[in-house]
Amino acid sequence: MELFSYAFMQRALIAAVLVGITAPAIGIYLVQRRQSLMGDGIGHVALTGVGLGFLLSANPVWMATAVAVAGAVVMELIRWYGRTRGDIALAMLFYGGMAAGVLFTSLAPNGSNANLLTYLFGSITTVSPQDITAICLLAGFVVLVTVGLRRQLFAVSQDEEFAQVTGLPVRLLNLLVAVTAAVTVTVAMRVVGLLLVSALMVIPVAASQQIARSFATAFALSVVIGVVVAFSGTVTSYYADVPSGATIVLLAIGVFVTLTLLAAPLAKKRARRAAGDGTRCTLEVPAARPTEDDVRV
């Protein structure tokens, strides 16, 4: 296992595992609220932060975090107030974010769009020790929110109106979900890239819900799937010399397909067991209708 002896690979694997935990952990709430593509939108906006990082010679991870959090808060505000033209506003935000990122990077003294590629599609082996510090701190925040407030976030994501009537601070919790999603995007940015971030938030959740029956199981299972595909994807990318982000996402899709195929017979077995305790119909179906009286045309 020579790959564990390289410092860059150790950092890569730590980052991969943290992404495998955090992306599905916040993703499950986004999926539950039918905001599966929110991560994608935040990813676009975060690119502005990366560009600013290059331009101001600051750490792109922290800059991306700041911009992504601001973008997520704006998105949440649009969801509250601008319901009518909300989708147009979001489109402006997403593409504006992407465009600004490209522009800032090209203006940066040593920036070229080749640098951008490592953020767009991930470049896990170039994760620096400073990046790892940032990723660890941010991942800690995400885990704290998604696990510590799971009951409250479940309630808000499942039935927002009901949650409001229980007196929960629904707007605050919604903002927290948006901010946490933004933080997760920047955690995952170096590993799978901004364009593939959303995949790791959604696919493990989609895979787990094929076989899970409770929210708790779905949560745990999607995190397990996330960690497994992020870790094995990174190892595969080392040996096969292929990009880590793409490998991880395709592995996740493979898990989704496998679990979907497994789920069909499992559901049938459960249905059979459920039918076993019930009684069968005893009513007789009336005999076929006589046809001799039918009007012929």
């Binding site: 994501s157 499942q158 929960l168 929210f215």
Partner: peptide
């Protein structure tokens, strides 16, 4: 909602009015 939830999990959400 798409994400599975058990009867108990949904009912527990009501109790949040007390536990906050």
């Amino acid at each position: 909602s798409g994400v599975p939830a058990t009867v108990r999990e949904v009912v527990s959400a009501g109790r949040l009015a007390r536990t906050k």
